[in-house]
């Protein structure tokens, strides 16, 4: 299963993931992992070597726990992992985007959407449909005037710090 690359960190996480026994525990684990370790707004880059691997293993375990639950097929396919109507949940996110005309705010919303809703939190058929709308809007907001902003303006917009070696 593993290819030639492995680390102790991955082994430790795999043990922790294997010990997940309920959807609620899995959801909590995934949500806190995504908040702490994924995206440009992550809290820490400590796990950067392993982040996508660990996230995918939590997702897979959580997906498995979800399908083991005694819920109807209809609920399995059309509700979020915590039992809400997937269509409505995605609709709420799309509604939030309606009034945004700032690319930075839109970017924040898109990243937050991904962290909150990416499967298995929301089934892919609903998640991706929402992502199509949100990302299309983000891309449109970003493209206009993109070539006119100077690098200095962009650095300021991002609040980055310039570094040099002392």
């Amino acid at each position: 299963m593993a290819n030639w690359y492995n680390t102790e960190t991955r082994d430790e996480w795999q043990d922790q993931i294997n010990s997940l026994r309920s959807v609620s525990a899995g959801v909590e684990c995934l949500q806190s992992f995504r908040a702490d370790h994924t995206g440009p707004d992550r809290k820490t880059y400590d796990l950067k070597k392993e982040v996508t691997w660990i996230e995918s293993r939590i997702e897979m375990r959580l997906g498995q726990l979800h399908s083991e639950e005694l819920i109807s097929d209809e609920d399995l396919l059309s509700k979020t992992i915590d039992g809400k109507c997937a269509k409505e949940v995605v609709g709420e996110w799309v509604k939030k985007a309606a009034d945004i005309d700032c690319k930075i705010k839109m970017e924040g919303l898109c990243i937050a959407y991904r962290k909150a809703c990416k499967p298995p939190m929301v089934p892919i058929n609903y998640f991706a449909a929402g992502e199509k709308i949100l990302i299309s809007k983000l891309m449109r907001l970003r493209a206009i005037g993109a070539l006119d902003q100077t690098v200095e303006e962009l650095r300021e917009m991002r609040g980055v710090t310039r570094l040099s070696v002392q």
Binding site: P40, D41, Y45, L154, R155, V160
Partner: peptide, 24 residues
């Protein structure tokens, strides 16, 4: 550059622009 506690290197401005515009 440093952003959100992480350091980044860029060899030239065109690529740096691409990152600054779409960091995620």
């Amino acid at each position: 550059l440093e952003m959100n506690g992480k350091r980044f290197a860029f060899s030239e401005g065109h690529g740096e622009r691409q990152w600054l515009q779409e960091p995620e």
